[in-house]
Each structure stands twice: as structure tokens, then as C-alpha cells.
Design a protein around this nucleic acid. Structure first.
Lengths: 188, 188
DNA sequence: TCCCGGCGTTTAGAATATTCAACATTTTTG
DNA sequence: CAAAAATGTTGAATATTCTAAACGCCGGGA
């Protein structure tokens, strides 16, 4: 039991959340069934809202009280990443990955652009870790083994499995294979 | 972004937390700098407290707003396990284990063997630290106080609680007490 | 340019939360 | 058992929040 307490500055916090969701005070007030004035006062920290009011307001976003107090919204303010900003990771000569948002904290999700050179193989001893992962083949082809199942995927094909099922990726073709994958929680 | 929202019943929730921590309305009010009447009204859901009031009250426990809204306190209310309640686990013919709180989530513990001589007492000022701990009495007996709950455990009995709830161990008997305990994260 | 619409802010009054003090009940103690 | 202490609840007075309606500001068309 030790969730790091975010700022006690409820007003700034609410304003930030509201703006992240692209809402005006009036629009949020309308959805929440409160007045825009109330939201204004709260965001200026001129009043400390009642739980019932705050809940009504968050319902209009919508966002739970738990999420409101738990999440670090300031940390998720970078939405767009230029290709050059992706973090480059290499595994040997044949496998490389480019990670989205490698600098962000408290990620619940990880997205990778993966490249498998011809002959690349994550190995006989199958990978296993917590979470789930999925992906779509962009170009080339890739043979994926998940538990007892094995299939060679072509561009446009996709996969989705629980990461604790042993899995293995191989490129049997003569061209590089490019795929986009996502996993939760991040494995590194 | 989807922490499961605990009950919106703030009053019941506050009362439960307060009682888990072994505090009276008046004692909590004194620590928090509010009146006992206010806490009474909040716990009956006759008013919806302001964030500032709720924060002051939780500071008196202490507990962060994030933890208050995030954690499921009802789920961790089983503190004592009778010997017969321990989960029996067998590995083949030769290895078996008896697991404490096998139904609880997020366990990450390290075990210790502790000996309490007759009269031993961790003291009136109750211990509080991060993490969780559990243990099984091997021989002798031990009186354990956790928040508002107190029980004298006999060999085979066990305990499991969050370490930030004030706790105290005493050996009131005439024989040494031996127990196997585990804590997380390691405190030394 | 002037007007219009939307934005966040402000103010007075209605609604709600909190305090203070007393009450009824239970628990402790001699 | 009675007295005393402690607990949670309640009513009247006070303090705070919320609403409703206005304000000032800014940007985008006629």
C-alpha cells in the first residue's frame, strides 16, 4: 500500500485533465450537471469541492475518482512522436526495435516497431513474461510459434496472445520483416 | 487508464478504514484537526465532505487520497488464519507447503525465522512501515495486535497484514516463541 | 469597423458542510 | 452494582461551497 500521492493541487489537476480531454468549462459543466462557475472556482483553488461535486464533474469526462487521484497526467502530455524520437533498441545483428514513448513514466502500454532480418530467430528457448501482446505484419513474413500453435504470417496478418504462453519469432524468408507490436504492461 | 473505481460510498469506506486502523471518531478527529461530529456525519453519508476536509481526515490516519480511492480495504480484512485455513500445497510425494493467505493478491514476501523469549514485547508505540508481512507460529504463543484487532496465536496459527497498520508483538507465555515470518519488501 | 459568439471569471444569494455543545448509549472501573 | 469515561449521534449556529446571472475579454466573420 503505497501509491504515490499526486499533487494536492486539485484545481490545477482538474484543469489539466479537462484540457487534456479537450473540454471547455462550460461543456464539462453541461455534461456533469454543474455550473461553469463552480468549475472555474475549483480550478482556481478558491473553493475545495465536495466529493459529490467532484464526482459529478469527473463523471462528465468521464474519469473515476481513483484515476483522478492516482494518475500522473502531466507525465502523459507528449502525444506525438517524430520518427527520429523513437528509442532504438538492437538485439544482435538481426533484430532491431523502435520504441514509442520510451521516456514516459508509468506506461501501461508499450508499442514497438520491430524489424527481423532474413534468418532472424528469437531462439529455441521460448520467451515468457507477464502481460499480453499483439501485432500486425507490415511487410515481409514472419513465423510465430505460440504454445502448440505455429503459423507464418503475411503482411496484414496479426497476432494476439498472453505473454506467459511460450512464444518464438522467426523470419524464414529472404526479405526483412517489419511489424508493429503492442504489449501491456511494458516488458522493458 | 482504467483503475477500477471502488465504491462511491465514501462514508462506509471511511468508517471501514478508520476501524481497520483502530481509531475512534474522536481520536481521528483530534489527529486530523476536525470535529468528531463531522466524521460522524460523513460516515453516515449525511454530507459529502469537501476534498480539503477529507484530506485533513485522511492525513490523520495517515492515508493518501489516492490510496483511499484506489485500494480495496474490504479485501484485506482477513488478518488471522486458523491452522485449518492454511492452503495446503503438495509437490509430488515428498514436498508439501502450507500457504498463508493464498487468496490474497500481490504477495511478494521474504521469510524469516524469529524467536521471542518470554516477556518479549516490541513496545507500546506500535510499529509502522511500508510493505506487508505474515507469519506462522511454530512453537510457544504470541500476542499480536494489528490495528483494532488483537489475538494470542498458538502453534499452527498465522497472521497476514499490511505493515502500515500499527502492530505489536508480545510473548506473554513462559516459553520461547518460535515463528516463521515473511515480509515485503525486506526491511534489512 | 462593429457585432456576435464563446471563453473564463466574478458576485450575491441559496444550498450544503462544519463546528460546538449537548445527548443517549455502551464500556470500563472501582 | 454504580460511577465514570468513552463512543457515536444529533440540533442550532457558523462557515463554506454551489448556483444563477452578470461581467470583461478575445477572435472570427459581415
Amino acid at each position: 500500500m503505497s501509491t504515490t500521492a499526486p499533487s494536492d493541487d486539485i484545481g490545477t489537476r482538474l484543469r489539466l485533465v479537462r484540457q487534456i480531454y479537450g473540454l471547455t468549462q462550460r461543456e464539462l459543466a453541461r455534461r456533469a450537471g454543474v455550473t461553469n462557475g463552480a468549475i472555474s472556482l475549483i480550478e482556481q483553488n478558491r473553493v475545495s469541492p465536495s466529493i459529490s461535486s467532484l464526482k459529478k464533474i469527473l463523471d462528465g469526462i468521464p474519469l473515476s475518482l481513483a484515476d483522478f487521484f492516482t494518475h500522473n497526467f502531466a507525465a502523459s502530455d507528449q502525444v506525438f512522436f517524430a520518427a527520429a524520437e523513437l528509442t532504438e533498441i538492437a538485439f544482435g545483428e538481426t533484430v532491431s526495435m523502435r520504441m514509442v514513448g520510451g521516456n514516459l513514466k508509468e506506461r501501461a502500454l508499450q508499442m514497438l516497431q520491430e524489424t527481423y532480418q532474413p534468418g532472424a530467430d528469437t531462439g529455441e528457448e521460448m520467451l515468457r513474461h507477464q502481460g499480453e501482446e499483439c501485432g500486425i505484419i507490415v511487410s515481409g513474413s514472419l513465423t510465430i510459434t505460440v504454445g502448440a500453435q505455429e503459423k507464418t504470417l503475411q503482411p496484414g496478418d496479426a497476432y494476439y496472445f498472453r505473454s506467459d504462453i511460450p512464444h518464438r519469432f522467426r523470419n524464414p524468408g529472404s526479405a526483412p520483416c517489419l511489424l508493429i507490436s503492442a504489449s501491456s504492461p511494458p516488458s522493458f
